[in-house]
Design a protein around this nucleic acid. Structure first.
Lengths: 125, 125
DNA sequence: CAAGTGTACTATAACGGATAGTACACTTAT
DNA sequence: ATAAGTGTACTATCCGTTATAGTACACTTG
């Protein structure tokens, strides 16, 4: 369910946060679904429970899941809408990079082509 | 000439590298131009000389500048071309984020509009 | 020679990330 | 009631990266 890269610079707990959000955004995780427990996921990924606890706490702070002590941790009803709003942040990243490329003199078409390619769309001549 | 953010997560030496590359890409730094010495820049930015040395060493490793011990450090002839190749990496970042947004169901038009906006282009209806 | 370059080296401090271990409270199923 | 599985809270420790401090040396130019 999760895939951890131990060599990159991005912390494990951030990877968990990102991937969980992506699972929600893509609909693989829906309202009411239970997230893997910190202990189970800890063994599955060979990651310290505290690290996962940190990630889950942040997801909870963002309102994407709620904890039912003694029971488990579940995706909230607002989760899908909330990650949708979070996509604006990703758009800002693209905007930021695009501004750099613009300043560097890269033609805009090349950027647009890249976006279209990512969407699996054929490049129009 | 340089602007340092001491609170962000990105290390100072990386900021120096990035900004220098951007100056070269935008043409503000051309072949033969002298980079500020580690000592001068150290005082100007209130940054340790070693930190700047680290940044400059990396730029040198990438072939963007050469050091003339006792004289100074200068932008190479290949610098402009090399940073140009580096832009492909930035494009890959955009591609990566765009794939995420695609998976999340964000319409492609919204991404294209963002790119166009970054290029200062009006959005076409 | 003096001043300004780059370079090299050691040592230290500070911070974030991750781990280890323990303990406690709660819910569910048996 | 008990056991197993949840979440939660803590403390302590380790490690790597970043940044700083200080010193020393070699080189080039004026």
């Amino acid at each position: 369910m999760f895939q951890i890269d131990r060599f990159g610079r991005t912390p494990i707990y951030e990877q968990i946060i990102d991937q969980t959000q992506r699972l929600i955004a893509s609909g693989l995780l829906k309202e009411g679904d239970q997230l893997p427990s910190v202990r189970v996921l800890s063994q599955e990924l060979s990651v310290n429970p505290n690290t996962l606890q940190k990630a889950y706490s942040e997801l909870e702070r963002r309102g994407l899941c709620v904890s039912a002590p003694g029971n488990g941790r579940f995706v909230t009803a607002d989760a899908f809408r909330l990650v949708g709003e979070g996509l604006k942040g990703r758009l800002e990243e693209i905007r930021h990079i695009a501004e750099e490329l613009c300043a560097a003199g890269l033609p805009v078409e090349q950027v647009l082509d890249t976006v279209n390619a990512a969407y699996g769309k054929e490049i129009e001549a």
